[in-house]
Amino acid sequence: MDPSQDSAAPPSPPAQSGGSFGIPARLAFASIVIIASLAVVPSCWYTRSSLSILHQVPEGHVGVYWKGGALLKTITGPGFHLKMPLVTQNEPVLVTLQTDQVRDIPCGTKGGVMINFEKIERLNKLKKEYVYETLLSYGVNYDNTWIYDKIHHEINQFCSSHSLQQVYIDVFDQIDEKMKDALQCDCTKYAPGIEILSVRVTKPIIPERIRRNYEQMEEERTKVLISI
């Protein structure tokens, strides 16, 4: 046997392409990076609405969207939704009943006495079918224009046309309905998507000296009724 004829050398193993990680490992690594990038997005509204891909609309709200500052007609319901990051911004808008308070409303009566309404509560609702029209005309803070500012205006108008006796005693029980009707009248005309359900006005704070006089008058009247 010729010693020069050696047995065939074993075949070398095939080279692995793509470095030390295979395709499944790359896919897993990419998935981890995507999930981590979504999890570490800061919680501020602008950053979240600008950078995130997945967003959530809570129950009782609808999702509204802006692209380049322009309000889109797209309205989404509660749940998870996808959008284009860095291009589209979103914000949830409440479309169920909401109760808000307007505090510290000073006004002057017909006789020139300054009084202060410490708190006025109102119950209102934004109709879902009018979300786009309302936000397009008045923005996300539509209630500042048609509720907060309007309550200040209507209360001052009411006080300026009535005396202290009327505001504090005689027609105080009518202020709730008058405020509700005045707010709803303008909303129906200019912002039909806003529905005013009720308004509750607390007793105004009047000067201490005048308040004591009213209390004394009430005590005297009670004594007369008891004696009769």
Rank of each mutant, 00 (worst) to 15 (best):
7 S>D: 15
7 S>E: 15
11 P>N: 10
13 P>F: 06
14 P>S: 11
17 S>L: 15
18 G>L: 09
22 G>Y: 06
28 A>S: 15
29 F>K: 06
34 I>D: 04
38 L>N: 13
43 S>I: 08
45 W>Q: 14
46 Y>C: 07
46 Y>F: 13
49 S>K: 01
49 S>W: 01
52 S>I: 03
53 I>W: 12
57 V>D: 04
58 P>V: 02
60 G>N: 01
60 G>E: 04
70 A>G: 01
75 I>D: 03
75 I>A: 05
77 G>L: 06
78 P>Q: 09
79 G>D: 04
80 F>T: 09
81 H>D: 08
81 H>Y: 13
83 K>V: 00
86 L>V: 07
88 T>Q: 15
88 T>S: 09
89 Q>D: 11
99 T>I: 14
100 D>A: 13
101 Q>N: 13
101 Q>E: 15
102 V>I: 15
103 R>H: 06
106 P>W: 06
107 C>M: 06
111 G>P: 00
112 G>T: 01
115 I>F: 02
117 F>D: 03
118 E>N: 13
121 E>K: 12
140 V>W: 04
141 N>L: 09
143 D>S: 14
150 K>C: 03
152 H>V: 09
153 H>T: 09
159 C>E: 05
161 S>P: 00
166 Q>P: 01
166 Q>M: 07
168 Y>T: 04
169 I>A: 07
174 Q>Y: 13
177 E>H: 08
183 L>Q: 03
191 A>M: 08
191 A>P: 01
197 L>H: 10
198 S>W: 06
203 K>N: 02
207 P>E: 05
208 E>F: 09
209 R>L: 07
210 I>A: 05
213 N>Y: 03
215 E>K: 06
215 E>L: 10
216 Q>I: 11
219 E>H: 10
222 T>W: 02
222 T>D: 05
225 L>S: 10
225 L>D: 10
